[in-house]
């Protein structure tokens, strides 16, 4: 077994707080965020069917990700305040190459709260 490098994922929550998470190879960024208990609705559970895991990708990382496919682009139509760097975090597969990735949870990704 070769030595595995830790994969770091930086996530800024909806309140602006930055969290440093350790991701696992092959996990979806959304799953890592959810696993740490950060506030992400992700209601379809990673099926690219709800747009409630919408994130903004840090400019330095935009080119390093595999571009969104048509399904993801279509689903982003149901997100709000969509920008050039918008992605659905359930469609970002973590790997060593992405260690250090910085994401910010977008409006609409917060879980339901009882008022």
């Amino acid at each position: 077994m070769s030595e595995q490098k830790q994969i770091i994922l930086h996530v800024t929550d909806q309140q602006g707080k930055v969290h440093e998470l350790i991701a696992l190879d092959g996990w979806r960024a959304m799953e890592v965020i959810r696993d740490y208990g950060l506030p992400v609705k992700a209601e379809c559970g990673g099926a690219c069917s709800c747009a409630t895991c919408h994130v903004y990708v840090d400019d330095d990382w935009a080119d390093k990700l595999i571009a969104p496919d048509e399904d993801e682009e279509d689903m982003l139509d149901e997100a709000f305040e969509v920008q050039e760097n918008s992605r659905l975090s359930c469609q970002i597969l973590m790997s060593e190459d992405l260690s250090g990735l910085r994401l910010k949870l977008a409006p609409g990704s917060e879980p339901d709260t009882t008022d």
């Binding site: 609705k41 209601e43 709800c50 747009a51 409630t52 139509d77 149901e78 997100a79 709000f80 339901d112 009882t114």
Partner: peptide, 18 residues
């Protein structure tokens, strides 16, 4: 028209110690 999302809704008012 941005699709649907799940909200707990009136079930929260059913007095079930959420």
């Amino acid at each position: 028209f941005f699709g649907l999302t799940m909200k707990l809704g009136p079930v929260a008012e059913f007095g079930l110690n959420l």
